[in-house]
Write a protein that binds this DNA or RNA. Structure first.
Lengths: 140, 140
DNA sequence: TATTGTTATACTCTATAACTATA
DNA sequence: TATAGTTATAGAGTATAACAATA
């Protein structure tokens, strides 16, 4: 096996490790969401609503269709976690956290941060090493 | 904001970057699978079949139920990519790639490796830096 | 005419539970 | 009795297409 193939094999192994890390993170997130009585998609949505946002923007950030955001918003509204606030452009509706929603979102965000692998398994030095590598991986 | 909160915020940001990298990788994999006419779950399964394996083992490696492996195997068999070979223990069936299946798997694996972000965006030095960090994140 | 959100519908992925055939 | 695979069914998550209101 040549040098090129070695590097390919190493890259493949590292990619798999990256996937494993994120799978673990997602499973942690699912546990946290469940502990607050939320399906994962609702928990994901609520985490984006730090500030009120048009449904179209939520769709962009969740990388999903507008129609799906409608159904998420319906569920969140039924649970009393958000309200639909009309925008200045009257086609637009701003999803806005209620008091209960804000409280829940803060609790979820705090739990996610504290339990994150990056926080628990890496020290400050290691996190500083990781950052530029991830930036490199994400450059377009 | 205290030092602890800074570190929490930094960890959260790094976690998000990790997720973004993997989302990108998954989207690349989906594109590759589609270019070979395969739904993602079938492509994932075929990638595990380097060597014939009992369906139970495939379920373990895909982290799914045995019944789902049955349906994946049905699809792969219909497409002529695998056959079910009886094991010595006659309850067991070994999923075994056909010639066409082997060829397809090799092409997919090669495409995934070459297009991986880790391979394309990081040099050998950076990959050596990344590895121990990922190991640290994955230690139990 | 283009865009926002909604509705109705349908699809993909995956699990659960009951079953069979071996062991 | 326990295990491997199968069958039938159901659920979660998400998309597509046609539509109403507004720009």
């Amino acid at each position: 096996m040549g040098k090129h193939d070695d590097q390919l094999a190493q890259a493949t192994q590292l990619s798999q490790m990256l996937i494993d890390v994120v799978e673990r993170a997602k499973s942690d997130f699912a546990e946290i969401a469940a502990s607050f009585g939320l399906p994962v998609p609702l928990a994901r949505a609520i985490c984006l609503l730090d500030t009120p946002a048009p449904m179209r923007d939520i769709a962009a950030r969740l990388v999903c269709e507008r129609s799906y955001v409608t159904s998420l918003a319906d569920e969140l509204e039924q649970r009393g976690l958000i309200t639909r606030v009309p925008g200045e452009d009257r086609r637009v509706k701003l999803l806005t956290l209620t008091t209960a929603g804000t409280e829940l979102r803060d609790q979820i965000a705090a739990a996610v941060a504290v339990r994150s692998l990056v926080f628990r398994r890496l020290d400050a030095t290691q996190r500083r090493q990781l950052e530029p590598l991830l930036e490199q991986l994400l450059t377009d």
